[in-house]
Design a protein around this nucleic acid. Structure first.
Length: 149
DNA sequence: GCCAACGTTGGC
DNA sequence: GCCAACGTTGGC
């Protein structure tokens, strides 16, 4: 089993929204590296659910992969904010997975706090902050889940 | 709202 | 295939 971190803006879709839905598609990823990470996911993989562009930003909860990567229909929907004219049902360019709510952290872990933990120094989040779907080492995942309660 | 970092596009 | 221009992300 692998571990990942996925970013979302809580104003658009936060941990409470996932909790209410139970399982939801992770649509709208339009970055190749992030997409490729989703294509590498297996059902049951664990996810750190990260709130970005938030006040404060940080890890808000835990989720897991519920469905393998499949075409993202918002990519060929002209009404969608995520529309990509180069994508079509015949030639899907973008993928998404479904994710299932696991739990909300009792202790929200703000980015500032994560930065202060030496053991987490190697996290992609802290080095290449823009990547919205990224792999996480098991040790890092476990530590964050433990501190988060 | 600013802006640094970084990804993508397109002319050549 | 280079790289300038441009667009986006995301912390602050």
């Amino acid at each position: 089993m692998r571990h990942w971190l996925m970013k979302t803006e809580p104003d658009a879709f936060g941990i409470d929204d996932l909790k209410a839905k139970g399982t939801a598609p992770w649509d709208g990823v339009r970055n190749y590296q992030a997409r490729n990470h989703m294509r590498d996911m297996a059902v049951g993989d664990r996810i750190l659910f990260y709130h970005s562009s938030a006040n404060p930003s940080g890890v808000a909860g835990l989720a897991k992969v519920a469905r393998l990567a499949y075409p993202d229909p918002s990519s060929w929907d002209p009404q969608s904010h995520y529309f990509d004219p180069a994508a079509s049902p015949e030639n899907p360019r973008w993928s998404m997975v479904d994710v299932t709510y696991v739990r909300t952290l009792k202790n929200f872990l703000a980015l500032e706090r994560l930065k202060a933990i030496p053991e987490l120094g190697g996290m992609i989040l802290l080095q290449r902050s823009r990547l919205s779907v990224q792999p996480v080492e098991k040790e890092h995942y476990d530590l964050i889940a433990k501190l988060g309660g």
